[in-house]
Simulated assay, not measured.
Amino acid sequence: MSLITPNRRGGANKGGARRNENNRIYGLPLPLEFSTPATARFHPARHILGLFGIPDTRILNPHCEGTFDPLTCSVWVTNSKDSTILWRRGFFGKGDLSRSEPSWHTRQMTARKAAGKFLTSEEIREKRRAERKQFKLDRAAALAQAAAEAEAAFAEGREAAPVAIPSGATWKPQAHPTAEDSRSPTPALTEEVEQEPEEPLEDLEHLQLTLQEAFFLIWNFNCLTVIDPATNEPMSLQQIWSTFRSVYCDKLPPPLSEPAMKRFDNPFLVNYVAYHYFRSLGWVVKGGIKFCVDLLLYKRGPVFHHAEFAVLVMPVYEDPADQESSPFTLANAEPFSWSWLSTVNRVNSQVQKTLILAYVTIPASSRVSCDQTMSPACLAHYSIREVVLRRFLPARMRD
């Protein structure tokens, strides 16, 4: 018996085909894939191994490859297959020529074919924006026509003729051909274009991973290999840990750069703690600079839903003396004004996002030895507490 009640107006499930396709493509939440051999599913040895706690499930590791770029402080994944795996399995990184999903090559191929059947997410967004703009223009023109007809009828002493005002429920986009589109090409020119072979289109886009995303994939799943651009050799975990921390230290004067390597308030450590915390809770974490925040939290990913939460990373020093001697200027570490906080909260409330203040407590150097920062084990000394901030609306919250 089906649990889905058919919709008498528009079918059983509007947009169900697209939703099912997204569930198939983006079904894996992480790059690792767990697989059970088909021949071993009903094998008697499977039950015997299960009694001893030995699983027969295999872990398929994609082993993607990227190159560290010191100028952009990120990791570039140039292989299109690896880029597709990292994006579709957890939405890691973003395309450098795209808004989020690396779809530049697909958009170019679609433009060549000019079929309009297969649209990327960015093309769908631009199409909807153009339709909304055209609807507003048509509605404004109809309102102006209705006002002119009412004035003319009042002056002539007659009843105004009805003017159809388009509404969002009934309005449908119509093609507006231009002078160039109305011209039909000559047969000779058409044959020449058809006979001319198309040049192969090179994919110029790469997937760009932040340092936090790259280290999360390396340290937790070992599914990403980072290449040193100077030697073209794979970097070890210790080299990656040291390189990612030195990104912020290299910007300091030479007398301060070396001692800063062993500080707990290194911006990479503070930002990674927040990123790792929310990723470990099952959220898809993306950058939130568009909404004046540090992070955006998606329940499943940008393809399925909009971000539900916007996160501001708030560093807090356990020992105030460490803040006074720090060579780093951490964002949101100083006391903020209520006007600034109200502004950020208002921006995110307008886009249906709940603001979260994530306070990352930086351990005191007097309590924990700074030599522990030479290993990722130092992350265990950090702690996070969350404060959910909601905008107070007197008209809705009187009870």
Rank of each mutant, 00 (worst) to 15 (best):
K133M: 12
N61G: 06
E21C: 01
R99Q: 13
I384W: 03
V285P: 04
E122N: 06
S121E: 15
M235G: 02
E386S: 09
D399K: 13
S98L: 02
V247W: 05
R19K: 10
L30P: 00
Q108D: 09
E202S: 06
M314W: 13
L143H: 11
S337P: 02
P31Y: 05
H43Q: 06
V247R: 10
P177F: 09
L355N: 00
R19S: 12
F92N: 03
L201G: 08
A364K: 04
L237R: 15
L224D: 05
I227Y: 02
F52Q: 11
S100I: 05
F392Y: 15
L49Q: 03
L211S: 07
Q174L: 11
P335S: 07
N7H: 14
E318D: 11
S337L: 07
K286D: 05
A188V: 13
T39H: 13
L71M: 09
P166N: 09
N271F: 04
T231A: 07
F291H: 14
F328Q: 00
T343R: 12
S366I: 04
L256S: 13
Q239G: 08
A111Y: 09
L204I: 09
A380Q: 14
R300K: 11
I289Q: 12
R183S: 08
K299D: 07
S242T: 12
G16C: 08
L224P: 02
I356P: 01
F91R: 02
L379R: 00
H63M: 10
R112L: 15
T170H: 15
N348F: 04
S326Q: 07
E33Q: 14
S236Y: 02
R99L: 15
C370K: 11
V368G: 00
T57S: 09
L71E: 15
L295N: 03
A153L: 01
G116V: 01
M235K: 04
R125I: 10
M109G: 11
P62F: 05
L341R: 14
K299F: 09
G53H: 12
K286M: 06
P102Y: 03
S375Y: 13
H47T: 11
L389H: 07
H305C: 11
A111G: 12
R19P: 00
A164S: 15
E233M: 10
V163L: 10
L97I: 01
F91Q: 03
E122L: 08
A152K: 10
A188Q: 12
L295K: 13
E318K: 08
S35N: 13
K136T: 08
R390C: 07
C64K: 05
V360W: 09
P315F: 11
N220M: 05
S366N: 09
F309C: 01
G116M: 01
P173H: 06
A260R: 03
R58A: 14
L97G: 00
P229C: 06
N222W: 00
L393Q: 13
P6E: 14
C378K: 01
F154H: 10
T67R: 15
F154Q: 13
